[in-house]
Every structure is written in C-alpha cells, then in structure tokens.
Design a protein around this nucleic acid. Structure first.
Lengths: 140, 140
DNA sequence: ATCGCAGATGCAACTTTTTGCAGGTGCGGT
DNA sequence: ACCGCACCTGCAAAAAGTTGCATCTGCGAT
C-alpha cells in the first residue's frame, strides 16, 4: 500500500533531476492511478487548488511526466487524450465495434519487451499500451 | 509486386462496403507505403489534384481508413500525427534519447496478437506500433 | 435510365494542442 | 543567507483536430 503525498512526489521529481514547482506538484497530485483524465480536466482540477496556472503549463508538464513514465498518455480518438498516473504497468484492449475497454495484464506484453531487448538492445518502455481491435462479440 | 491504381483502390473500398468518392481516391492515392505524411501534407497533396477538398474531409477520411486498417496513424509527439498506407504490418522503435527510429519486424509482435486472442478472444489489430524507449547507445 | 436516401462532403465555429518569447524562480555553489 | 542562471511559467497567437448542420451524391432498388 503506497501512500503518496507532496513530499513523496517532490522527492521523486528531484531524484530524476527535475525541478520541484508548485505547478508540477499540483498537476501530479491531480492524477491518480486508475483514473483517466483529459488535459482539460487536469487543468480544471489544478486551477482550483492553484489559481492562475496556465493551460500550456499543464500540457508541457503532462508531456514531461509522460516522458518520465510517471504518467501515461492515451489517444482514444475521442477528441481529447487521456492521462493517468502510472502505478505499475497495465494495458487496454479497445473494441472498435462496441467501444468497450478491457484491461490487459502486463504479463502478456512483457515477453515482447524482452524479445525486443534481446534482438535490438532496445529498452522498450511500453508502460501503457492501447490496443485496438474487435472483441469476441463484435468479431462475429 | 503489387500495382496500385484508382480501380484497385475503388474495388478495395467497395469490397468493404464503403462508397467510392473522388475525395477518397485522392486521399488514399496520396499515401504510399513507407512514406509518413502529416494530415496537412496529405491535404496539400490532395488539394493540388482535386481543388476544393476540405480539411475536415481529409481528417474524417484518414480516420476511416485507419479504422479499416488501410492506413496507420502514429503520434510521434511532434505536433502532428503521421499517416502511412499499410502494406504489410511493421512497427517502429523510437529512442527517446537520440530520437532515432528503427524498424521492428511484425514477427516479434505476432505472438502478442495470438496470445491476446487465445486469452481474451480479442482480435487485436496492431498494424503499426510505435514503441518508445532507449536504444543501446542511449541506455548507457 | 431514374429515384430515393443513407452516407459523404463543405463550411464555419469550436475545442484541443503546440510554440516563441519575455519575465520569474528553484536550487547548487559561494 | 545570497547569487546567478538554466530551467519554468504565463501569455498570446498559431496550428492541429473535431463537430453540427445543410447540401450533395453514390449506388441499390425500381
């Protein structure tokens, strides 16, 4: 059971050589594992706890957090991308027929990661994959 | 060696129950395997061969072609998504350190597709994966 | 060949995301 | 405790992508 607090986040940022700013704490604090938010929703949440924050700061910070693998960014083609704090790898199967989503355990994806490393020496991230296709029902 | 012409594309569209329109032929015709274009570049190309086409038509058509797996859509985080005609599956390894791209054969990804199908009965597309991470050089 | 209509397109407004730049601020070094 | 400056942020404008609606058009049925 991991407790997350401002100091925890601050340490995590500092550990990876990033500056700790109120904006970043607020943005990271607005995200939690298992909850998908759009950039705009993040903005709204941050705005209430720290008025005056700019949209572009939210976008830039989310981009940075994505690059650091602290946050996943997923484009479900629905007009706005979804952001989520990463706490352990997981993936989604998205049916293009009915739109339903299903979680996919990382165990199935892990072999791909290792194969890629063996074959290319490439350390693949693959923190959060969005795999599109057709579910059993819709395939018929 | 596959020859592609307007009639070929038309047949392909009709086969999957889609209407054949000059706009669609032009858009599909502007794309070719191995060449990544942004939506705007597609628009420019189409515009010259078929003046008056609207941007939103380009976006809507690209979206449809993506859903039909005729075209791949990839977000390389560089401001605009890249589109490419699919002729056989292939994937990319993208290094977040140096930005270099490397092709990844589908053979390595195919097992994931089958595992997902066995386990969930889900027919995954995965036509064109963009996998981020660190190449051998940058990992050091 | 013609008709009818579901599906496509053009248009315009709107939302979402990116970018250049000027000023502000965290934090390592003193 | 204070300085300096590289890194951040806010701002404003532009670029990229989406949507609602009225009109148009491919194509199956007549």
């Amino acid at each position: 059971m991991e407790q997350i607090g401002p100091e925890h986040l601050a340490r995590r940022l500092r550990d990876i050589g990033q500056r700790v700013t109120p904006q970043r704490l607020a943005i990271l604090g607005a995200l939690r594992p298992g909850e998908h938010l759009s950039a705009d929703e993040v903005f709204a949440a941050v705005e209430s706890s720290l008025p005056g924050v700019n949209r572009s700061t939210v976008y830039r910070t989310l981009e940075m957090l994505r690059d650091l693998s602290l946050v996943s960014e997923t484009d479900l083609g629905g007009g706005a991308r979804q952001y989520e704090r990463i706490e352990g790898r997981h993936h989604h199967l998205i049916c293009q027929g009915c739109g339903r989503q299903q979680e996919l355990e990382d165990a199935l994806v892990a072999p791909l990661r290792s194969t890629i490393f063996e074959r290319y020496g490439f350390a693949a991230g693959i923190e959060h994959l969005a795999i599109f296709g057709l579910c059993g029902e819709c395939a018929r």
